[in-house]
Computed example of a mutant assay.
Amino acid sequence: MQSANIPGRIKLARKMAGFRTQASLLARIPGWKSSRLGNYEAGISTPSADDMLLIAEATGVSACWLMFGQGPIRPNERDLQAVRHQNLTHAMDGIEEDRERLDETVKRLRISRKRLREHLDNPFLPITDELARRLERLLGTRPGWLDEQHVERDPLFLSFPEEMRELMMIYSELPAAQRPVLMATVRALKDSLQSA
């Protein structure tokens, strides 16, 4: 199972945007070779910040969420099902390889292996409140845990200084039309500090 990392978020963003295939998303990003997106989704190569922004714009997700797994998935919106899917994927990472743990997991969740696999493969398959609460009990977490994003699991995000993470969050949550204003303000501040 793919953990909730950059390749996993790129694939999830593509599926949530309704692009069933990589080719259908590539049609929205002119100039990219077919292998480029495939390499990003497979984790073979890591996209640049500019490429992450192009993917975010083409799929309608927040650039901050796409890169770091932090903040709302879509600007000015919290997509509950996508958050639940991301957390389920992370929680189940490695369980399929351990037959005993898998048997115990599906028994306690009261679903079949096939149904669990469908939930992991399909971000559009709704995770009901009842299943979410059963998973939380299985994991020993508090009610509502599955409905929240947990950035502490993303090592890339944590590798950045706190101020940079905050700035990424601010940028991500702004409407697209206001982002250039923030960037112009930051650049003006930088220029004034350099000339002082």
Rank of each mutant, 00 (worst) to 15 (best):
S3N: 09
S3D: 09
A4K: 01
A4S: 10
G8T: 04
R9D: 03
R9T: 04
I10S: 00
K11G: 05
L12I: 06
R14P: 10
R14M: 08
K15Q: 13
M16C: 09
M16Y: 07
T21N: 02
T21G: 02
L25H: 02
L26D: 13
P30L: 03
N39Y: 06
E41F: 03
A42L: 11
A42K: 15
G43I: 10
S45D: 12
S45E: 12
A49N: 11
D50R: 11
D50A: 14
D51I: 09
L53K: 14
I55M: 05
A56H: 02
E57F: 00
A58K: 05
A58S: 11
A58W: 05
L66K: 04
M67I: 09
M67G: 10
M67D: 06
F68D: 08
Q70C: 08
Q70K: 14
Q70N: 12
I73T: 06
E77M: 09
R78K: 11
D79L: 12
Q81P: 08
Q81H: 08
V83Y: 01
V83L: 09
V83S: 03
R84N: 07
H85N: 04
H85R: 05
N87M: 05
N87S: 07
L88V: 07
T89F: 00
T89R: 15
A91Y: 11
I95V: 15
E96D: 12
D103A: 15
T105C: 15
L109P: 06
R115T: 12
L116A: 05
R117V: 06
E118Y: 07
E118S: 10
E118N: 11
H119G: 02
P123D: 01
L125K: 15
L125D: 08
P126I: 12
I127R: 02
T128W: 00
T128L: 01
E130F: 00
A132K: 11
A132Y: 05
R134K: 14
L135V: 08
L138F: 15
W145V: 10
E148Q: 15
H150C: 07
S159L: 01
M164A: 14
M168H: 11
M169Y: 09
E173T: 14
E173Q: 13
L174S: 03
A177C: 05
A177G: 03
R179Y: 06
V181W: 11
M183P: 02
A188E: 13
L189P: 00
K190F: 08
K190Q: 15
D191V: 04
L193Q: 14
Q194V: 00
Q194R: 12
